[in-house]
Amino acid sequence: MSPILEVKDLQTSFGEVNVLAGVSFAVEQGETYAMVGESGSGKTTVIRAIAGLAPAQAGSVKFDGQEIRGIGERALRPLRKDIAMMFQDPTGSLSPRLTIRNLITEPHKIQGMKNRDLDAEAKRLLELVNLPAHFADRYPYQLSGGQARRVGVARALALEPKLILADEPTAGLDVSVQGELLNLLNDLRERLGLSMVIITHNLNVVRHVADRMGILYLGRLVEEGTTEAIFHEPRHPYTNCLLSANPEPDPDARLDRIALKGEPPSLIRRPSGCEFRDRCPMASDVCSQVPQWKVTNGHGVRCLTPRHL
């Protein structure tokens, strides 16, 4: 069976600045793939490029076997029903002049499904994300941050998509509402075979929802594997730093943090050799060479001196 989403060597530049330097990954039907990585590493750009909302100068994006990179908005429109986005900025992605009812049934209108009972649809979708029905009459500015986030989720789920591209879908939610949302997504996956790419910086979320995960650094995957394998045997030193930094909900917790040296590197002048070496606690002379992508037991890493190998 071919994967529902297959991204190969995706490249994006904004002007001179090369933000994605060749990103490849695939998502099987019914699978949840988490994309994590430093702020500014290109996560949002990856999913926006997949959805045709950011440029992608080279590479390939196949949805259900069909090439969709650069096919243009007209050709994409029918697919918008199957590929839904949850945007990182919840309030900013909702037009301020529309009521919540209009916002969450907008996908129906765009897809020409006006004859459905849109009031009932709005009610059903609000219920799905545990918001009271009377919220349908509100405007975005009358919502709290977390409520706006849930409206974005309801809107993305409106047409029962096959693939969800979710950018920080639980940011700004309290842990109980976050649990409800993740349970809902898990349920949709089991019942409808929903596939998902989820970007989150919350490692606690990754551990509970993702089957596989990829770690992005400076617009390149530096590690990819099952969530299990990565949490237990991270191979890339960056992954290791990231996992060790996770703040614990206990004021007396003693954390063995591995300090990440230096500043995030410049995209204008990318470092030579291994791009992580200036900040890497394990760097040695060999790291002046460019590391190749190396896969063993389905676990890939881009490092010359990987751990656990």
Binding site: S39, A171, L242, A245, P247
Partner: peptide, 14 residues
């Protein structure tokens, strides 16, 4: 500060 670190990865958050 109203949820100032929701979009930050763990290392930056720290």
């Amino acid at each position: 500060a109203d949820e100032p670190t929701t979009a930050l990865d763990a290392t930056l958050e720290v």
